[in-house]
Design a binder for these strands. Sequence first.
DNA 1: TGATACATGTAAGGGGTTACATGATTTC
DNA 2: GAAATCATGTAACCCCTTACATGTATCA
Lengths: 185, 185
Amino acid sequence: MLKYALLGFLNYRPMSGYDLKQFMDQSTANFWHAKLSQIYITLKALEEDGLVTSSPVAQESRPDRRVYTITAQGQTDLTKWINTPEFEIAPSKEPFLLKLFFSAQLSKESLLAQLRIQRDLHQKQIDQYQTETADLIKQTTERAPHLLKDALLWNATRRSGEIIEEAIVRWLDETIEMINKEFSA
Amino acid sequence: MLKYALLGFLNYRPMSGYDLKQFMDQSTANFWHAKLSQIYITLKALEEDGLVTSSPVAQESRPDRRVYTITAQGQTDLTKWINTPEFEIAPSKEPFLLKLFFSAQLSKESLLAQLRIQRDLHQKQIDQYQTETADLIKQTTERAPHLLKDALLWNATRRSGEIIEEAIVRWLDETIEMINKEFSA
DNA sequence: TGATACATGTAAGGGGTTACATGATTTC
DNA sequence: GAAATCATGTAACCCCTTACATGTATCA
């Protein structure tokens, strides 16, 4: 899947592995992320498969960059993927829920403390979606008005994050209240 | 982390890898899952580390089972983990959001079709949380009343799923409406 | 002076999936 | 007669993380 994230970005314009990492960190990080080392490895594989080409670009007083460009074959592959609906919910792993599931031996106070930590974390995440993430999309659209259609979808993914995080905070509030009332000692 | 899922279940009672798989599939699957092959591998590692012990149990007309029991060291390790708060939100990977992010080239109808598929999937997930998952917790509590405290937490993880899935369905409805109104062609 | 940004890459190891192997019993 | 259930395990492979290596320029 990282493959398609990289092709998706390269379909906007050619760029280096380092650039791709920064774009991901700023836009898709909350639903798709990757380490630089893995990005370099995957780019190499994409080039071997003929989905991208690369060429080194010299720079003054900076290391050389290797700039990747999507090929026609790469675009075909990307379009095929975009046109294929997802028919299953991706199974997720949530360490906090796993821990909570087995936490009956915890004291009431420890349990509440852990729930409050989670509440803070998710509230901060909401704030980020509403400020930084929203601003970034706005700025990009102002600078590149031809990406208006794209921006609608970028904002839909942002809203997804915002709405889900709000639901999680509500759940944590409800759970804190429940523990307060019903959890003995 | 699978390590702690296994220790958590074995802390209720000794059981085999096969049993553990079934318990996971019925209870934690929505926030933690594993394949049988990986469970067997992890159990072996846990035994090498002295956190569980195992012994083969013969059966009539069924293959032998290897039953694992948590050790005192295993319980210490589990308790330590339960007492350690999670200070970060686990980064997730959501294939559908990644695809949506890059879907500006899709036709309006294809986009809407994909969103409707997702809506159906998540609505079914809500139903499952409200019926099967809720019933299972209820039944277990009736059969084992000493697990009432545990059941409060099991139900909290169930509610988490229910609330988040409801938020996702609301987001999909909102997004479908947005695409209908604002997405050209 | 030490950290951070820029820029690419390799090596080792962890965790996970898929496929394969075995073999009896039960269910459709 | 075929498929599913019970039951454990190995092998190959893939993806990912962490750590390491290299080297200049800028910023605090």
